[in-house]
Amino acid sequence: MEGSREKEQIKFEDALARLETIVRQLESGELDLEEALAKFEEGIGLVKICNKKLETAEKKIETLLRGEKGDFVLKTLEGKDEKGR
């Protein structure tokens, strides 16, 4: 879905800040039921996004070198090469 992909583009800290706001709003008890449920749903989505963001990266060290033609060469420590540009 385009929408959810767009949502995942949100920065971790922005997602976290939004989540904190939502929790505070819900805790205030001032929302009506429809709003509360919508916020809850959004909050759950944000929790997933945050957790995903914490886990997506792998532990990986690569070295970046300038290639001969001005392009660049990425080498992982296992020796796999990935050419760019």
Partner: peptide, 22 residues
């Protein structure tokens, strides 16, 4: 961060439950 998100997630659940029950 994991703890923070876990805490927020728990608060989120508790808050919505409280909201619905109230």
């Amino acid at each position: 961060l994991v703890k923070l998100i876990q805490g927020l997630s728990e608060r989120l659940n508790a808050a919505v439950k409280l909201c619905v029950s109230s």
